[in-house]
Design a protein around this nucleic acid. Sequence first.
RNA 1: GCGCCCGUAGCUCAGUGGAUAGAGCGUCAGGUUGCGGACCUGAAGGUCGUGAGUUCGAGUCUCGCCGGGCGCGCCA
Length: 556
Amino acid sequence: MATLRDLVTQRIASALDAAFASGALVTPDEAVLLPDIEIARPQQAEHGDYATNLALQLAGKLRKPPRDVAAALVEALAASADDPLVARAEVAGPGFVNLWLAPAHVEAAADAIRSAGTQYGRSEAEHPLKINVEFVSANPTGPLTVGNARGAFVGDLLSRVLEAAGHTITREYYFNDSGSQVERLGQSVLAVRNGQPVAEDGYHGDYVKDLAESLPADVEGKALEDTAMGGWIVGEWASEQIRAGIERSLANLGVRFDVWKSEGSLHTEGWVTQGVDRLREAGQLYEQDGAQWFNSTAYGDDKDRVVYRSSGEPTYFASDIGYVVEKFSRGFDELIYVWGADHHGTIARLHNAAQALGFDPDKVIVLLVAWVRFVVDGVEASMSKRSGKFITLDDLLAEVGPDAARWFFASRAPSTGIDFDIELARKQSSENPVFYVQYAHARISSILRKAADEGLAPADSVAGGLADDPVALGLAKELLTLPDIVRDAAKERQTQAVTTFATELATTFHAFYRDRRVVDKDDPQTSATRLALVDATRVTLASALGLLGISAPESM
RNA sequence: GCGCCCGUAGCUCAGUGGAUAGAGCGUCAGGUUGCGGACCUGAAGGUCGUGAGUUCGAGUCUCGCCGGGCGCGCCA
């Protein structure tokens, strides 16, 4: 389904064709490559509902003053009051063409919002993709911290936006259940259970004590005292307990994963071997000092990378290679990795390996999420699972709730660092803009209840009811931009624009509410139209919030 | 040393190359004989780190510099 911006853009494109056909615009002797038509919503109302800089871009190529080109475009648009889409067009400034939408179109589109319901804002993708989004992927050696959790927010929000833009998403959690850290975890749990001190490089958090207390006398039928493998056995057990706990924490946040993939399974299922074999067949694998190296420098890396150590053990990178092969074997068009910024040094080798494996490296997309620093009383505090000092996702959700937490992360670019002060978060949560938006939704719900009590109902259609009221028309126009906002967000792979939209829409609604009486028994016809408009606003707010996984309360 | 990220109002942050750079919080001054005051109106507050360049037009693109962060392992 075409968005409003699509419709206006198409309209300008046909006007441009008409201008050339009529001779109003003429190309010089040589061929002219026409620019893509871009339109934007101007900041100022007097600049129209949409504006295009097409004439400015075309002027040089056509060797004609920008305002003359703009005038030819306006002429070709031949907009008039009874035009179905564009009611007015004019030349402005250095050569902008400003457009005003036809009220009848706005009214019809506002009606469509209400019939779309919670699906409003979603659109079909021109090229729907099957996308794998891998995120969080924190190893299960301790609860999720606020730092890990940022990836959970970013990954889930991104997935939601991509889904709304018409793509099919698989949410995936990748974890390592077989490394030496698992053994260390097991030894730490055993030490606590046996009343012994935990090794310096072990795990010290309170959760280790909890695990020790719930540790059964034997795991998988193996008594723990009489085996040198106790660390491993207990480690695997503890790791799974923690993984299940992480899954519960994420569920509290409203994040669910379609696939939990362990690194070990990539080996046992043969994907790593298959991937490395393909590199060897491609002639990009060689042996040196007893180790197997990937020829990453051939693709621009600053050094080659070890795949199998001289001990014969595979590296983490070997697993990555196998994982790329495994993921593409499931038919994904794109792989998105949400990684902590500290992993940026490994992006090049991943891309290079994908290319050497015969995949399009542009389909392997790594999004970096900046650090979250843990600040106490304005001073940075260390946060590590080993030391046991950290704020968990559960702590955060207990303090501020999932809605405020989601909004907090959704409204910031993933690439900017965050100093996270839990005291400040607690204090500010009541001032979180999310409540401002939710309040607008609750207020509308209340208005609709009040209207029903008084025997008033929203009109089936607002047709003919908005044109004469600039305040109502302005609100309606704002509702219509959500699908374009969502589509852009998916394209940019960022979600801030959705929170900005929701905040601005709430502001516009509150102003409308101040200036226009909605429930009015003395004027039932106007009241019915306004109730319909307000209901469309409610749907739009609920959609924008729902898109971010945030609730839209009927009262608060 | 090399690479990546960041630098916008007092604070936290938005800002697809476009017209007069915005929001929330904070500060100050106001607003309710009508539908939710978790609201609204107004004011103060900016050399967009800095210097060049590209462009009709730069917070946005390119290069240099300054400041902060993170990487640079046969760790994960």
